[in-house]
């Protein structure tokens, strides 16, 4: 699952550590999500979308070949 977290985070001049702190997770988790190594739970996805001022739909996109 691709996402635009890194782009939106940089737009808002937030570090991974700061975003992690705001979302209540570790910096490693934000890094893993940004690098498509971990798919967050629905509640974390909503929290991230809220923090980055967007919607879950805008933040996450299905990659090609993923279950439709």
């Amino acid at each position: 699952m691709q996402n635009r977290i890194m782009v939106l985070r940089k737009d808002q001049r937030l570090s991974q550590a700061r975003l992690a702190e705001l979302a209540g997770v570790t910096r490693q988790t934000i890094n893993a999500i940004e690098n498509d190594k971990y798919d967050p739970s629905l509640s974390l996805a909503f929290r991230l979308a809220d923090l980055l001022g967007t919607t879950v739909d805008d933040l996450f996109q299905r990659t090609k070949g993923e279950h439709q």
């Binding site: 209540g24 997770v25 570790t26 490693q28 988790t29 971990y38």
Partner: peptide
């Protein structure tokens, strides 16, 4: 563990 990824 500190968050959901580590718990997973």
């Amino acid at each position: 563990t500190d968050d959901e990824r580590e718990r997973a």
